[in-house]
Simulated scan of single mutants.
Amino acid sequence: MKRIHLFELEDFSWFPGWLRSCMTRLIVTVHRTLGSSDELAELLARALKESSSARIVDLCSGSGGPMLDVLERLNEKPGLEGVTLTLTDLYPNAEAARSINAREGSNVSYRTSPVDATELSGETAGLRTLVSSFHHMRPEGARKILESAQKSRQPICIFEISDNSFPAFLWWTALPVNFLMCLLITPLARPVTARQLVFTYLLPIIPLCFAWDGAVSNARTYTLGDLDELLRGLGDEGYRWEKGVIGGRMKKIYLLGIPTRPAGSGD
């Protein structure tokens, strides 16, 4: 595989929750800048309709990423008005969960107990999504996620905005770009807290962490060729896989898994 599995700071359990929240808010801002919500909504609308699903289970949600915006777009589409969204994470964002779960009559919820994307239970029926998070998984974990979706006959969508098109040894060149990006987009993040401003512009801890994790994300991203390796031996008469690149302000990689026969119908 081309990818390099370096460490990301956000992967560690000891990484401060407030710092993780600041960084995930920046990631949401990046998605909005790149127009990810519209592209994701089109992919998910197709997956929902083809699989006859009415529920999305988002894995590795962080602060929610672009999925809240995506759900609004989906609910505006005919036949998808009743689609619901459940956000999950191995390290649930307590602040985001409180805010989301406090909304009365909402079709979005945030599960407050940890959910390991590689060890899913029967409670995760519905369209599984991993948005800018699949690269966190080592190949064995990534393969388990794909196998689980196919075995349980649940649709899945993987969507990455990281760019792993450069030669592998140049992964570090994204560090200064990401540092500068953090400085530029912080005023656009919502909500912008005093802590986020202080540790961005006075003590640049957030830009340093954001620069490192962003550069490592690029190096970790599964290329289309890497996905072929992960998918080797998968796919059968009851399940199909589709991968590709979506153009736009930045090329994004996606992988769709869609059941062609419902669970429990036999092989």
Score class of each variant (00 low, 15 high):
residue 50 E to H: 04
residue 228 D to W: 04
residue 266 G to S: 10
residue 144 K to S: 12
residue 159 F to M: 04
residue 90 L to C: 05
residue 210 F to K: 05
residue 98 R to S: 15
residue 234 L to V: 15
residue 82 G to F: 09
residue 12 F to S: 12
residue 50 E to F: 00
residue 84 T to V: 04
residue 149 A to V: 07
residue 202 L to R: 10
residue 235 G to I: 12
residue 44 L to I: 15
residue 226 D to W: 01
residue 233 G to S: 09
residue 104 E to Y: 11
residue 252 K to D: 02
residue 254 Y to C: 06
residue 204 P to G: 03
residue 198 V to N: 08
residue 151 K to T: 13
residue 173 T to G: 00
residue 220 R to I: 08
residue 107 N to H: 12
residue 95 E to D: 07
residue 128 R to Y: 08
residue 181 M to T: 13
residue 143 R to T: 01
residue 156 I to R: 03
residue 254 Y to P: 10
residue 150 Q to W: 06
residue 163 D to H: 13
residue 48 L to T: 14
residue 30 V to M: 12
residue 43 L to S: 09
residue 46 R to E: 15
residue 19 L to C: 08
residue 8 E to W: 02
residue 46 R to F: 11
residue 48 L to V: 04
residue 76 E to S: 14
residue 37 S to M: 05
residue 231 L to C: 09
residue 192 V to A: 15
residue 59 L to D: 07
residue 216 V to D: 05
residue 40 L to D: 07
residue 254 Y to V: 05
residue 155 P to D: 07
residue 110 Y to R: 02
residue 197 L to D: 06
residue 221 T to W: 01
residue 185 I to V: 14
residue 39 E to M: 08
residue 3 R to F: 13
residue 184 L to Y: 14
residue 163 D to F: 00
residue 146 L to I: 03
residue 113 S to F: 11
residue 63 S to M: 01
residue 74 L to H: 02
residue 252 K to N: 00
residue 205 I to D: 06
residue 13 S to H: 13
residue 242 E to L: 07
residue 135 H to W: 06
residue 193 T to F: 02
residue 195 R to F: 15
residue 60 C to S: 09
residue 178 N to P: 00
residue 201 Y to T: 01
residue 237 E to Q: 15
residue 192 V to D: 05
residue 105 G to S: 13
residue 34 L to F: 08
residue 208 L to H: 01
residue 144 K to L: 14
residue 68 L to G: 02
residue 217 S to M: 01
residue 161 I to E: 07
residue 80 L to T: 09
residue 8 E to R: 01
residue 239 Y to K: 06
